[in-house]
Amino acid sequence: MSVKDLYPLAENAPDRVKTPTGKLLSDITLDAVLAGEVTAADLAITPEALHLQAEIALAGGRRTLAENFHRAAELVAIPQDVIMETYEMLRPGRADLEMLHAQADVLRSIYKAELLAKFIEEAATVYERRGIFEKRY
């Protein structure tokens, strides 16, 4: 059986995915929501699910989509404000070479986000060469 056959996970492999709090898909019911047993924290994707979706995408010949899912898997654990701060730094004229490298180190050391760190370092090199760090306001 190919990993592609697991798709859609909700129908073909519901047991392979859990909520971040360890619940099964079948535990997410309206009654559970009303009883307070399921909260917004349950309705989120896990790195495991994203890696699985990446494998499925790759099996379907979509390498770049798979790479995006792997990067996304690293981002799951990263708090929203850190995501927004990193995104902001990647925008033109916001940071400089050192700042981006420092941010890459933070992601690598604190969040074990190796792919993202490399991605940011790659951006830093290109930004430096193309003058993207130049302040615009």
């Binding site: 994707i45 899912f69 799951v76 995501i83």
Partner: peptide, 14 residues
């Protein structure tokens, strides 16, 4: 930039 947009794309998926 393509990198900032790709980062945002991954953020949505995450």
């Amino acid at each position: 930039t393509p990198w900032s947009k790709a980062f945002l794309t991954a953020a949505y998926a995450s």
